[in-house]
Design a protein around this nucleic acid. Structure first.
Lengths: 112, 112
DNA sequence: CCAATAATTCGATAAATATAGAAATATGGA
DNA sequence: TCCATATTTCTATATTTATCGAATTATTGG
C-alpha cells in the first residue's frame, strides 16, 4: 500500500461520522448498508452523509453498488488489512516483536 | 479504546510528516528517536516537527522522555494495538471472519 | 409521463489544521 | 556566568475540511 493512499484512508477514518459509518459497515459484512440507512442511523443529513461516504470510497475503504433506488455501501476488508499492515511494518526493528506487551501479534502477516 | 481517542489517533496519523515520523518510531523500537533527528530525517523545520510530535503525543501514540538536551520519542505499541482492535471490532458480524480474503487474521484478539 | 423515493452535487459559510519564523525555555559545558 | 545546543511555544497566515439547504440526477410504480 502506498503512503498517499494510506493517508487518504486514515483521513477518511479520522472523523466521527465516517468512523461510525465504517464500523457499521465492517459489522454489516458483505451485505452492506444503504446510504440512507446510514444517514438515519447516524442522524446526519443525507447530503452530509453522501459527502462522508464519498471520502470513504475515494480512500478505497468501501465499495458501493446500486440496488434499485438505493446505493449500498460495504466495507473493503482488504483495504483495511493493507492499512494495518502499513502501520505495523517492520515493527520494533524485528526485535521482540512476538513479545505480548510490546508489539502486535502478527505485524507482517501476508495471508493466513 | 474510546471513540474520541481513536479519532485523535487516526487524525494524528493522517498527515504525511506524522505518519512518516510514527513509522520511523515503530521501526526504532523502545530506544526511540530524538525530535531533532526526526526533523532532520523528514526535512521539516523543528517548530513544525514539534507541532506534529505534540499531536502524536496527545493522541497517546508516542511517549516522550528527556535525555540530556534531547527529547526522545518512542512509539506506544499498546495504543497502536488498541487502534487496530477498535477498527476491526465485530468484523463481518462474526461470520466468515477466518476466511483469508474477506477479513482480518485475528480481529478480536485480546492478548497473545 | 408524472409523482415519489433515494442519493448526489452544488454553493456558501464556519471551523479546524498546517506551516514556519521568531521568541522563549531547558540543559550541559567552558 | 555565559554560550551553544535542543526543543518548544507563540503568532500569523494559508489551506483544508465539515456542514447542510437547495437543486439535480437516477429509479420505480401508477
Amino acid at each position: 500500500m502506498k503512503a498517499d493512499r494510506v493517508i487518504r484512508a486514515l483521513s477518511a477514518l479520522a472523523q466521527e461520522h465516517r468512523l461510525a459509518a465504517f464500523r457499521l459497515l465492517v459489522q454489516a459484512g458483505e451485505e452492506g448498508v444503504a446510504a440512507g440507512a446510514l444517514a438515519e442511523k447516524l442522524d446526519v443529513p443525507p447530503s452530509s452523509m453522501s459527502f462522508h461516504l464519498a471520502q470513504l470510497a475515494n480512500a478505497g475503504l468501501v465499495a458501493q453498488r446500486r440496488e434499485s433506488r438505493s446505493i449500498i455501501y460495504s466495507a473493503d476488508y482488504a483495504a483495511m488489512n493493507g492499512l494495518m499492515g502499513y502501520l505495523t511494518e517492520n515493527c520494533c526493528g524485528g526485535i521482540a516483536c512476538s513479545d505480548d506487551a510490546a508489539c502486535l501479534p502478527s505485524p507482517q502477516r501476508k495471508s493466513a
